[in-house]
C-alpha cells in the first residue's frame, strides 16, 4: 500500500518523483546484477590476499625456524577435530553447489534443504573450531607453528561466519520473496527484479563457498598433513 506525503514536503525533498523508462529500469537492473556478480569475485580476491598473508607467515616462520622453534616435537593441533572441520566444510561446499544446481532446475525445496543443512554444518564447524582451541596441547606462543595455528583458527572462524551469514541471508530472502514471485515462476525462474537479484547473490555466494572450501583444503594440508 502506498504511503502518502504532502505536496509541500516534496518540494523540500527535491525530485522524489523519479520517472524512469522501462529501458532505464532494465539498464540499472543489469548494472546491479553485474555489481553483485563482480562484488562476489572481489570478495574472493580480498579473501585470497587475506589468507595469503597467513600462508606467507606460515612459510616465512617455517623457513626461518628461529632458534629451532618452528615446530618443536612436531606438535600438531588435534587432528581428528581438524579433519572433522575440514570434512564438514567440504560437505557444506558440495551441498551448496548441489543446492544451487537444483535451484536452477526449479527444485526450490531441494535447494532449501541442502542450504539449511550447509548452514547447520557451518555452525557445527565453528563450534568444533572453537573446541579445538580448548584442546590444543601447546601454548599459543610456544612456537611459530602454534602462533600460525591460532591465527588460522581465528580466520577460519571468521570465514565460516561469513559463509554462514551469506547462506542464511539468502535463505531468508528466498522465503521473503517467495510469495511475491510465486506466480512468475518462483525464485529460480522469475524475471522479476527481486528474483534476479536474489539469483545473482546466490551465484556469488556459491562461488565464495567454493573458495572457502579450497582455503580449508590448503590450510588443512599445511597444519595437519605437512
Amino acid at each position: 500500500m502506498a504511503d502518502e506525503i504532502p505536496a509541500a514536503d516534496t518540494r523540500a525533498l527535491g525530485p522524489v518523483r523519479l520517472m524512469e523508462t522501462q529501458e532505464e529500469l532494465a539498464y540499472e537492473l543489469r548494472a546491479a546484477e553485474g555489481a553483485v556478480f563482480t562484488g562476489g569475485r572481489f570478495l574472493v580476491g580480498i579473501g585470497a590476499f587475506t589468507f595469503a598473508s597467513l600462508a606467507f607467515a606460515y612459510f616465512y616462520l617455517r623457513t626461518s625456524n628461529n632458534l629451532g622453534l618452528w615446530r618443536p616435537h612436531h606438535a600438531t593441533a588435534p587432528t581428528n577435530y581438524g579433519a572433522a572441520v575440514f570434512a564438514i566444510v567440504l560437505a557444506d561446499a558440495m551441498l551448496t553447489i548441489i543446492g544451487a544446481v537444483r535451484l536452477r532446475r526449479g527444485m526450490v525445496l531441494d535447494w532449501q534443504v541442502a542450504w539449511w543443512t550447509a548452514v547447520g554444518g557451518n555452525l557445527l564447524a565453528i563450534a568444533l573450531q572453537i573446541l579445538i582451541l580448548t584442546r590444543l596441547g601447546f601454548d599459543s606462543g610456544s612456537s611459530g607453528y602454534a602462533s600460525c595455528y591460532i591465527g588460522w583458527a581465528v580466520l577460519n572462524i571468521l570465514l565460516m561466519l561469513t559463509t554462514f551469514y551469506w547462506l542464511e541471508v539468502l535463505l531468508a530472502r528466498a522465503m521473503r520473496i517467495s510469495r511475491a514471485v510465486a506466480e512468475d515462476g518462483g525464485p529460480s525462474q522469475s524475471r522479476l527484479p527481486a528474483a534476479r537479484m536474489f539469483r545473482a547473490s546466490l551465484d556469488s555466494a556459491t562461488y565464495f563457498v567454493v573458495f572457502g572450501a579450497l582455503i580449508e583444503l590448503l590450510f588443512w594440508l599445511l597444519f595437519y598433513v605437512l
Binding site: A57, Y60, L61, S64, N65, N66, L67, L69, W70, R71, D139, S140, G141, S142, S143, G144, Y145, A146, S147, C148, I150, G151, V154
Partner: peptide, 20 residues
C-alpha cells in the same frame, strides 16, 4: 594476537620473526 593471546608471530625468541 601477539599482545593479547600471547602468540609469537613477531617474537624471535619463541619461533616468530620481527621481519615478518
Amino acid at each position: 594476537l601477539d599482545r593479547t593471546a600471547l602468540t609469537a608471530f613477531y617474537v624471535n625468541e619463541h619461533g616468530g620473526s620481527s621481519f615478518l
